[in-house]
């Protein structure tokens, strides 16, 4: 019993991992089911945050001399921010033509288009 309590309340690496995992899957779920394009973008950000938590957690538990994880996460924050900004810019251009934020309006996918 004491052991289980310890597992729950003694914050260790696996707590962070589970947190990141849940957040990642919420993000993935959101990208798949959201109908609003902006919401899809937000969900992508969740996935990004989850990855960063993973990296930082691993780095601070195992790698606190070289800190590769911290560096990686900083790189990823920069890239992610640029990606989001760019996505919004292109969204702006796209929206002007079609006047819709509904993903289904942009869906052609693998189907046939004549």
């Amino acid at each position: 019993m004491n052991n289980i309590l310890n597992l729950i309340f003694d914050i260790g690496l696996y707590h962070y991992l589970f947190l990141a995992l849940i957040l990642f899957l919420i993000g993935l779920f959101g990208t798949i089911i959201s109908k609003n394009i902006l919401k899809v973008l937000i969900s992508v950000e969740f996935m990004l945050t989850a990855v960063n938590i993973n990296f930082i957690a691993f780095a601070s538990f195992f790698d606190n001399i070289k800190l590769h994880g911290f560096v990686f996460s900083l790189f990823y924050i920069a890239i992610g921010a640029v990606e989001t900004a760019l996505a919004l810019a292109i969204f702006y251009l796209m929206f002007q033509a079609k006047q819709s934020v509904n993903t289904e309006d942009y869906e052609d996918g693998a189907g046939e288009r004549c």
Partner: peptide, 11 residues
Amino acid sequence: SIFLFGVSYLY
């Protein structure tokens, strides 16, 4: 993101 999620575990 999926790629990096894998990388983070490998790391």
